[in-house]
Amino acid sequence: MKKIRLGIVGCGIAARTLHFPALKELSHLFEITAVTSRTRAHAEEFARMSGNPVVFDSYEELLDSGLVDAVDLAVPVDLNLPFIERALQKGVHVICEKPISTDVKTGKKIVALSRNSNKVVYIAENFRHASVFWKAKELIEAGKIGEVVYTSWQIWVGMDESNEYVRTDWRKEPKHVGGFLSDGGVHHAAALRLIFGEVEWVSAVAEDLSPHLGGMDFLSTLFEFENGIVGNYTVSYSLKGEDEFEVVGTKGKMFIFWDKIVLNDDVVAVPQEDSYQREFEDFYHVIVTGKPNNLGNPEEALKDLAFIEACVKSNGEKTFISEFLL
């Protein structure tokens, strides 16, 4: 089986703790051949743990080396657009960490670049690869709780200044809309859209509660899907609490957890899988076999971001998602 020669660009938290463990399990599909990072010491450290690929002092040198078929971008969000553009100019495939960009306006430019290139641009949204959300979708479509009327998702992350994500420089002074609200929120938007379909409008309030987190860190929303399902999504990155994901139908309700779904009085176990490994596997097959890029499609990632940007800019007013995607 042909291996893809992969360059790692950015050796921070995502590359070290999320991407590399997945790539280690996929050594039959990928060979890490090059690495670069803003701090050379971080690149060298990553190289030592990943088979000693060539370390480059700059992204441009890595792209010009001829050592990579694809790059894995795990860089500050504001670099996604220029780094994707440079890779495509060099004829190199891209897998890039979410969110797609700092805002919908620049995200549209990435979508345009992808459409006009014969190389793959894959936005790495691992929630689109999480088995439990696909299982929930399956059970709903099978009518297990009747016609869905309402869903509520409350998420209490509870970060403080000791959290390594909070200490990341580019997150302290975020250039991406809403700070953590979009950084983490596109995950939740992806799951909601996967299960229930497209969101038509949203009314939301966003707040900055913690002095330790860059940007806003609390969001509460009311919204409606195009199919008429009403939803509430509340998330806080500074407050602690118990998460709850509830779906209410005309014949019962379900609660969604990471490893199970409680369906009325029954428990449906969902085997845990590495969603990062699954997204890299999918990226491989999109490149090598020509599989449609449905799960890493930049247009889907743009819709995730549009939901969050509409929430952040709503100020309590009814705001239509389509206004951000025109």
Rank of each mutant, 00 (worst) to 15 (best):
V248P: 06
L26E: 09
R40I: 14
D160A: 00
A301G: 07
H176Q: 13
V312K: 08
K303S: 10
S220P: 00
Y165A: 09
T33Y: 11
T168H: 11
L23R: 10
S58N: 03
E161D: 13
V121K: 02
V148R: 09
R40E: 13
P298M: 01
S114C: 12
Q277F: 00
K109Q: 15
T250M: 05
Q89L: 15
K119F: 14
R48N: 11
I13R: 11
S314V: 10
T319V: 14
A269P: 02
K251E: 14
Y59M: 01
G107Y: 09
N227E: 04
A190D: 13
D243L: 03
T39K: 15
N52H: 11
V230D: 04
G197E: 05
S65F: 06
E207S: 13
I13S: 02
V268R: 06
D208N: 14
S37I: 08
S117R: 09
T102L: 13
L194Q: 10
V247A: 01
F324G: 02
W258V: 03
E173F: 12
Q277A: 06
S162M: 02
D103E: 13
L6D: 03
V286L: 06
A301Q: 07
V71P: 09
V92P: 08
D265R: 14
Y150G: 01
L29D: 03
F280Q: 07
L29W: 05
K3R: 14
D169H: 10
L326F: 02
V55P: 02
S314E: 08
V267I: 15
A306R: 07
G296I: 05
D265T: 14
V202H: 03
F223P: 00
N163C: 09
G252R: 03
K2E: 15
D169S: 12
I100N: 08
A74R: 12
V202E: 05
G184Q: 02
L181R: 07
E61S: 14
G241L: 05
L213E: 00
E323C: 04
T250C: 07
L139Y: 12
F30P: 01
G7C: 09
F180G: 03
V120H: 02
N80P: 01
H28E: 15
D57P: 07
D266S: 15
V68Q: 00
V111R: 09
H285Q: 10
D64C: 00
E299F: 00
G290P: 06
D304N: 12
F20E: 10
S117Q: 04
F46P: 05
E207W: 11
Q272L: 10
